[in-house]
């Protein structure tokens, strides 16, 4: 997984653990956590395949733009690989 990633801006219904406020936002991978069960599948009594999980760090400026309380503060969240796109 590259260092810089963009969270996919997709909006399917259902049980999703990618917060709305991070969709479409660009961050850097803080660490790789390894494969974990996919909540979007497990919520519906299916097993599915495990997906790689990453901790991604975003600046408050990236997330909130001009509304950021302090642009250099950061937010880390765990995001599954299928929600991340590589940014060159």
């Amino acid at each position: 997984m590259p260092d810089t990633v963009k969270v996919r801006a997709m909006f399917p219904p259902g049980h999703i653990r990618t917060p709305y406020y991070l969709r479409g936002k660009i961050g850097t991978v803080e660490r790789a956590l390894g494969p974990f069960g996919n909540p979007e599948v497990q919520a519906y009594r299916q097993t599915g395949v495990k997906r790689d999980l990453y901790r991604v760090r975003f600046t408050m400026a990236e997330i909130w733009g001009d509304e950021a309380e302090n642009p250099g503060d950061t937010l880390d969240a765990e995001i599954f690989a299928h929600w991340l796109e590589k940014i060159d």
Binding site: P19, F36, T74, L75, E78, I79
Partner: peptide, 15 residues
């Protein structure tokens, strides 16, 4: 203080 960086951690998955 402004010069202390705040890092928020959103527990969105397995950690």
């Amino acid at each position: 203080p402004d010069d202390v960086q705040v890092r928020v951690h959103d527990s969105t998955a397995d950690m």
